[in-house]
Measured scan of single mutants.
Amino acid sequence: TGIVNVSSSLNVRSSASTSSKVIGSLSGNTKVTIVGEEGAFYKIEYKGSHGYVAAEYI
């Protein structure tokens, strides 16, 4: 489990890349469940599926 540490919002992406499609966003202080790690990204549970967020902001 981690907490989103941004002042505005954090993009949730379809894969572990900044060039991948943005599938949603999370606001600051949102609690997320981390299920894996790929490079600089965490794989998280997101809306019944999975998404990827930049690990530096969690």
Rank of each mutant, 00 (worst) to 15 (best):
residue 1 T to W: 15
residue 1 T to D: 08
residue 2 G to A: 07
residue 2 G to H: 07
residue 3 I to H: 09
residue 3 I to A: 06
residue 4 V to W: 04
residue 4 V to I: 08
residue 4 V to G: 04
residue 5 N to T: 11
residue 6 V to K: 12
residue 6 V to T: 14
residue 7 S to E: 12
residue 7 S to T: 12
residue 8 S to G: 15
residue 8 S to Q: 11
residue 8 S to V: 12
residue 8 S to W: 15
residue 9 S to T: 13
residue 9 S to W: 13
residue 9 S to M: 11
residue 10 L to E: 03
residue 11 N to C: 15
residue 11 N to F: 14
residue 12 V to D: 02
residue 13 R to W: 15
residue 14 S to M: 13
residue 15 S to L: 08
residue 15 S to H: 14
residue 16 A to D: 02
residue 16 A to R: 05
residue 16 A to L: 04
residue 16 A to H: 04
residue 17 S to Y: 06
residue 17 S to W: 05
residue 18 T to G: 11
residue 19 S to F: 10
residue 19 S to H: 12
residue 19 S to P: 06
residue 20 S to P: 01
residue 20 S to N: 03
residue 21 K to F: 09
residue 23 I to G: 01
residue 23 I to D: 01
residue 24 G to E: 02
residue 24 G to A: 03
residue 24 G to Y: 04
residue 24 G to N: 01
residue 25 S to D: 06
residue 26 L to D: 01
residue 26 L to G: 00
residue 26 L to R: 00
residue 27 S to Q: 13
residue 27 S to R: 14
residue 27 S to W: 10
residue 28 G to V: 11
residue 28 G to Y: 14
residue 28 G to T: 11
residue 29 N to H: 12
residue 29 N to D: 08
residue 29 N to C: 15
residue 30 T to N: 06
residue 30 T to M: 10
residue 30 T to G: 05
residue 31 K to W: 13
residue 31 K to G: 06
residue 31 K to M: 13
residue 31 K to R: 13
residue 31 K to L: 14
residue 31 K to I: 14
residue 32 V to T: 01
residue 32 V to A: 01
residue 32 V to D: 00
residue 32 V to R: 00
residue 32 V to N: 00
residue 33 T to L: 09
residue 34 I to T: 00
residue 34 I to C: 04
residue 34 I to H: 00
residue 35 V to Q: 05
residue 35 V to E: 04
residue 36 G to I: 04
residue 36 G to S: 08
residue 37 E to Y: 13
residue 37 E to V: 15
residue 38 E to Q: 08
residue 38 E to C: 13
residue 38 E to S: 08
residue 39 G to H: 05
residue 39 G to M: 05
residue 39 G to Q: 05
residue 39 G to E: 05
residue 39 G to D: 07
residue 40 A to Q: 11
residue 41 F to E: 01
residue 42 Y to T: 03
residue 42 Y to M: 06
residue 42 Y to P: 00
residue 42 Y to L: 10
residue 42 Y to C: 04
residue 42 Y to E: 01
residue 42 Y to F: 10
residue 43 K to R: 09
residue 43 K to F: 04
residue 43 K to W: 04
residue 45 E to Q: 09
residue 45 E to D: 07
residue 46 Y to L: 03
residue 47 K to Q: 12
residue 47 K to L: 12
residue 47 K to E: 12
residue 47 K to D: 10
residue 48 G to K: 06
residue 48 G to I: 03
residue 48 G to E: 07
residue 50 H to D: 05
residue 50 H to T: 10
residue 50 H to A: 06
residue 50 H to F: 15
residue 51 G to E: 02
residue 51 G to Y: 03
residue 51 G to Q: 02
residue 51 G to K: 02
residue 51 G to H: 02
residue 52 Y to L: 00
residue 54 A to K: 14
residue 54 A to S: 10
residue 54 A to H: 10
residue 54 A to E: 15
residue 54 A to M: 14
residue 55 A to L: 08
residue 55 A to R: 15
residue 56 E to F: 08
residue 57 Y to I: 03
residue 57 Y to Q: 07
residue 58 I to D: 01
residue 58 I to P: 02
residue 58 I to H: 02
